[in-house]
């Protein structure tokens, strides 16, 4: 694997953020601080998703930099996997492309290390399936995340029932484990997630796989109200969020919007060299600018 990047102090919390924690209490995570800031500014946090290594790692790195400068609030970096069974055609395709050019979990850690080295202070969460993490070693992954500046993990095939080991590793290394909830989740399941989650709760907007959609699910407000009732954590809504109008609708009921397939499909219309600027423009468009 790539040589580990030396640990670096977490960037100072933005001025006006929560006061310093009591001695012995866990420090507020960079993710929590980011949502607190967007909430204080009355904005919907924008959480762009990119598949690491698609079309290549250098383009991913440059695109994250451009999105950070354009005001992205939280990044999700997709770790490619050979069998992405919760993903639609867009992320299947980008995952296959990233794997074909050799991108593995170790490369994703190294990518984040480089981004931190270039001054990116925005929270970054790695989103990927459980098997590559198991083979890497869960504790080793959490330790490496802490060393390079990955703030947490989202694992779509790891429900609460199977999450004990990764949760322990994340807590040991001060990382957030972000759980997904779905419109089908019962209130009991939502409570189980609320007991375990930190950082934010990823609210899957619909019953389905990832992918750009024309319309949001009509049941979204009621479902998000059910989630809100069990947790004070920030809620980020993903799957199908494609337009500024979607972001506006989501923002009425949640703290953040994850934009993945729509962004990736848009970038596919540009050469790798032009993708960072195109991504920044797309992000501004999502804010209605």
């Amino acid at each position: 694997m790539t040589a580990p990047v030396a640990a670096r102090p977490t960037p100072a919390a933005p001025s006006g953020a929560a006061p310093a924690p009591a001695p012995g209490a866990p420090a507020p995570s960079r993710i929590a601080a980011a949502f607190a800031r967007s909430r204080a500014e009355g904005r919907t946090a924008l959480c762009p998703f990119l598949t690491a290594g698609y079309p290549d790692l250098a383009t991913t790195e440059a695109t994250v930099l451009a999105l950070a400068e354009a005001g992205a609030d939280v990044f999700e970096i997709g770790v490619p996997f050979s069998d992405p069974l919760a993903d639609g055609t867009t992320i299947q395709r980008t995952s296959q492309g990233a794997l074909a050019n050799g991108t593995r979990l170790a490369d994703c850690f190294a990518l984040v290390g480089r981004l931190r080295g270039r001054g990116v202070a925005v929270p970054i969460v790695l989103m990927g399936y459980v098997n590559p993490m198991l083979q890497y070693g869960l504790d080793r992954a959490a330790a490496e995340a802490a060393a390079v500046g990955v703030d947490g993990f989202i694992v779509p095939d790891l429900p609460t029932e199977e999450s004990d080991d990764l949760l322990a590793a994340c807590r040991a290394h001060g990382r957030d484990l972000v759980f997904l909830v779905a419109p089908t989740s019962t209130d009991d399941r939502l409570r189980a997630v609320a007991e375990r989650a930190s950082g934010f709760v990823y609210c899957v907007s619909l019953t389905g796989v990832t992918g750009a959609r024309a319309d949001l699910d009509a049941g979204l407000p009621g479902y998000l109200a059910r989630v809100r009732a069990v947790t004070d954590l920030p809620l980020a809504v993903g799957f199908g969020i494609s337009t500024a109008e979607h972001v506006r609708q989501v923002g009425a009921h949640a703290d953040g919007a994850v934009v993945a397939s729509a962004l990736i499909n848009h970038l596919d219309g540009f050469s790798p060299a032009a993708q960072p600027a195109a991504a920044a423009a797309f992000l501004r468009g999502l804010r209605g600018e």
Binding site: L85, A86, V130, P156, D157, L158, P159, E161, E162, F179, L180, V181, A182, P183, T184, S185, T186, R189, V193, V204, T207, G208
Partner: peptide
């Protein structure tokens, strides 16, 4: 009850499916 055969088995499924 968790579907474990020793260290094997389990329920590594997306949350959307878990209630079903």
């Amino acid at each position: 009850a968790q579907g474990r055969f020793g260290a094997f088995g389990g329920t590594y499924a997306p949350e959307t499916l878990m209630p079903a």
